[in-house]
Nucleic acid binder design. Structure first.
Length: 262
DNA sequence: CGGGTTACCTGACGGC
DNA sequence: TGCCGTCAGGTAACCC
């Protein structure tokens, strides 16, 4: 998504900003249009699950929550039910932020102070110098919470949500409920590799073309066909055939193989 | 502070 | 057929 947005926005001037429905997870700030109109986009970046549209004025941050999408539409686009924000650029590009469940949000970063939402984030999972077994050994020490909860803790490592946590733990052969402190180093080496593989595969399978966002159901139609455990409770484990189990961990549904994951 | 739970929101889905 | 309850996800706000 970052790559798709960057291709459309980099170097463009945001000509018009329209708030269509201000209520998202957080209300869209009233001054957002006046701040962004006339701003030139420097680049579209990403940190954790946040998209960052850097401009020569302020930076627009957005989080897609669960169902949020940036949709590349034609300039005669008629506002849809869950359209919240519309951007028109100087070259006729139109982008719409749409989010049926309002779990996402858009906001401006402060002009002269660090972004509060980015302050306490853990390392990027695809950065081997920051996210590695040494790091996890250190962080998991004395942590008794289930390893899956900590893997999803954005202060420990960013970008891993419920689906990828379940998939990575299955591949690593680690039981999602296991207390993090009891996972041995050797298995953390494996976990780091599995997290990286799952994310890389998902990114590759998900495609990065902005036009994919236009699909009305918000699905990109990709990685769900390759899930080994997620949403497969009651079905046979792809490794051993054992019926996959469902548990609730940290309020999230968690599917795993009781035989392959220990 | 660590660990745990719940609210937020809408649409899809299953059961009756 | 149609109603209604349940569930899904990421994050913040709460609890003990």
């Amino acid at each position: 998504m970052r790559a798709g947005l960057d291709a459309l926005l980099r170097g463009r001037v945001i000509a018009r900003v329209e708030v269509l429905r201000p209520m998202l997870r957080f209300r869209i700030a009233k001054e957002l249009p006046s701040v962004l109109e006339g701003a030139r986009v420097v680049a579209v970046e990403r940190r954790a699950k946040y998209l960052l549209v850097r401009t020569d004025k302020r930076t627009l941050l957005s989080h897609l929550g669960m169902t949020g999408t940036w949709q590349h539409v034609t300039s005669d686009h008629v506002a849809q039910k869950h359209d919240h924000l519309r951007l028109d650029t100087d070259d006729g590009t139109t982008l719409v932020y749409n989010d049926p469940r309002k779990f996402g949000f858009v906001e401006l970063l402060p002009a002269d102070s660090p972004a509060p939402r980015l302050a306490a984030l853990g390392p990027e999972p695809l950065d081997p110098s920051a996210f590695n077994a040494d790091y996890l050994v250190r962080v998991f020490r004395k942590r008794k919470a289930p390893v899956k909860s900590l893997l999803m803790d954005q202060a420990i490592v960013v970008g891993v949500g419920n689906i990828y946590a379940a998939e990575a733990l299955f591949r690593a052969g680690i039981h999602p409920k296991r207390a993090a402190t009891t996972v041995k180093r050797e298995r953390l080496v494996r976990l780091v590799a599995c997290v990286r593989d799952v994310l890389n595969e998902a990114i590759a399978a998900g495609g990065s073309t902005i036009d994919d966002y236009r699909k009305t159901n918000g699905q990109s139609g990709y990685f769900q066909h390759t899930f080994a455990v997620y949403a497969r409770e009651g079905e046979p484990c792809l490794g051993c055939g054992t019926t996959l189990k469902l548990a609730r961990i940290g309020g999230r549904s968690s599917v795993y193989c009781g035989k392959c994951q220990r």
